[in-house]
Design a protein around this nucleic acid. Structure first.
Lengths: 244, 244
DNA sequence: CGAACGCTTGATGGCCATCAATCTCTGTGG
DNA sequence: CCACAGAGATTGATGGCCATCAAGCGTTCG
């Protein structure tokens, strides 16, 4: 049993493709330089060009865009096993910034190595493209969330999705998960004010649906919460391995 | 001069990579079956599995998701040269639906052919991945639009982006473009009610910023509009060929 | 021990949804 | 040829969701 088989990324990809020993090797070869970053200091600034991508192995990150008027929109959160900046490898400038929410550990991935892996290990390539497609599907669902759900359902839906993602890397369960986000993070992700997020969380708590407190999210009545939020996890496409 | 060199997709990709004759050939080989669809009838239903993707050669399409309560959120519009359903090739179920807004012509692309092309023509592959990354960047910008801009700026920003995209395939200019969208389409894309979209358009018109009328969008004072909307087209990454 | 950060709650108001009615335009069939 | 239906656009009235301003609390940390 190799350490890599327990890495969050390997764990996540295994939910889609059953990886062989040589594919675990190929995955390990992607890992070049291990790097640490402290909470709060941005990795890549919006507009800065950067040909490297990262795989997050520990900690939480958010990707966001700042508006000219200073307001911030968080596009997505990254948890262990997620890629960082895969898109900015191809576009000439990074179109958004990354902020570590906690201290993090990440592994640098060279664009060239990634393309080589695609050529030599098509099954692994499929798994990686699956993960990228899934990330995009999550951004789309986030967009629907902002466009067509009110604050209560939006918040509930978001916290349910986060839970489902964490389950995939072994960091969550049906009853809840540890969550280092502040109410300000939630506000910037959900397009709400922090004040209103606070009220929404109170209401969800008083209705026995979920608790967001002291760095923990705990689902009260999960079934009722899923029903309330209209959460249909199908877009996450995590119903067990597809390629045997 | 081959017909393919004038196709919207070739035209779009040429803005990123200067394509050679053999690359035009490879691009032509992707085009298998040409198909027509009439306005209003969906191509792929949400939840339906489908292993084929399309390249749109004529007409307009929108991709959207329907909520359990019947509300609709349009995720993106596709114009000639855009891919349809590239993501659902990898995920097991299509996570959204496609509605042709006008009668359209599209070319079917087999997933396998696409991967073959990646192996034989890396420059073309890079160009296609660039286009996909750019599409994703547009969804992100759309998300920011919904989360952090008021109705006026949101509408202005959206119509400016659409204009910039159309320029790339030769269907628009600095002064305006033809646009088959209804105010209902705009409402579903912008997360607003159709009534409010109407009011917003009136205000933009009365301020001399832009006219949306009779299937045409005409910019009044484009500079002021760009300033007003906070439109920074850098995320579109269309500043001329990158790979010579 | 003061400052910073995050959380909490109240008061006020504005943006935008909703309901409702009317108007134009186009296509269609009697 | 005209009546009619339907889609799209337009405008007014009302109200609710959520932003904003303001104040105060607890905890952590230098």
């Amino acid at each position: 049993m190799n350490f890599i088989e327990k890495s969050p990324l390997a764990r996540k990809l295994s939910n889609f493709v059953a990886l062989s020993a040589s594919e675990f090797d190929a995955l390990r070869n992607l890992h070049k330089r291990r790097r640490s970053f402290v909470a709060g200091r941005d990795l890549v600034q919006q507009g800065q060009s950067d040909q490297a991508a990262y795989i997050l192995s520990e900690g939480w990150v958010c990707s966001y865009k700042i508006q000219p008027d200073g307001t911030r929109q968080i596009v997505d959160f990254q948890i262990p096993g997620d890629f960082l900046g895969l898109r900015s490898v191809l576009l000439r400038t990074s179109d958004h910034s990354f902020e570590p929410i906690t201290d993090i550990q990440a592994v640098e991935v060279q664009a060239g190595d990634l393309l080589d892996t695609f050529a030599t290990s098509p099954r692994l390539a499929t798994a990686i493209l699956w993960a990228a497609s899934r990330d995009e599907a999550m951004v789309v669902e986030h967009l629907v969330n902002l466009g067509r759900r009110d604050a209560d359902r939006r918040t509930a839906h978001f916290l349910l999705e986060l839970g489902a993602r964490l389950v995939l890397v072994g960091m969550g369960s049906q009853t809840g998960y540890d969550c280092p986000l502040t109410q300000y993070h939630l506000a910037d992700a959900l397009g709400l004010s922090a004040v209103h997020v606070n009220r929404v969380l109170r209401q969800l708590r008083e209705n026995g649906l979920l608790m967001f407190r002291n760095g923990k999210v705990m689902f009260g009545d999960r079934d009722r919460l899923v029903e309330f939020a209209g959460f249909d996890p199908e877009y996450l496409d995590q119903n067990g391995p597809f390629l045997k």
